[in-house]
């Protein structure tokens, strides 16, 4: 979409006005600074998704809409999670972070901050794997997606 003030709120407003659900939304400018790219995760029946797509296309500032689910695609989400890490748990959490290919990016004597990238379900799996009471804080970006292979989304 056009990288203009207000474009994001048009999309968000459309979803709330029509009762569609936003599971996650991430947006930033692209290599062409006049354009922003948004990845939006939503759910609904085929009819609802068809309407979502059409309604998004109708927004004047939206240049192109594709449904990544229609083809092979890759999606990644970034999560920063601060966990309690004392005593024996310190090793256990480190091991778990390694298994999920996470990095510990900040350390105190009581906590680790772990950076983790992957599909949303991988991040969920990591949170399931560690003791819920150990989780102090999480922050997630929402998914970003891109098509597989040589095909590119260009305007």
């Amino acid at each position: 979409m056009e990288n203009e003030a207000g474009a994001l709120s048009r999309v968000a407003g459309l979803f709330s006005a029509r009762g569609y659900n936003i599971e996650s939304l991430s947006v930033a400018p692209t290599e062409d600074p006049t354009l922003s790219r948004m990845t939006l995760v939503t759910s609904g029946s085929d009819e609802v998704i068809e309407q979502v797509t059409k309604q998004l296309n109708k927004l004047i500032e939206v240049v192109k809409v594709i449904d990544l689910i229609d083809g092979n695609h890759i999606e990644r989400e970034l999560m920063l999670v601060k966990v309690k890490a004392v005593g024996d748990d310190r090793d256990e959490i480190k091991r778990l972070a390694d298994i999920f290919r996470g990095c510990i990016i900040d350390v105190t004597d009581k906590s680790y901050t772990i950076e983790l990238t992957g599909t949303s379900s991988k991040l969920d799996a990591f949170l399931d794997a560690i003791d819920n009471s150990a989780v102090l804080e999480t922050v997630r970006t929402g998914a970003s997606g891109i098509g597989r292979g040589d095909w590119v989304l260009k305007v």
Binding site: E47, Q51, K54, N57
Partner: peptide, 11 residues
């Protein structure tokens, strides 16, 4: 003229 009018309430 509006694609979003099509199959909105009736297929």
């Amino acid at each position: 003229i509006d694609p979003s009018s099509i199959s909105k309430r009736v297929k």
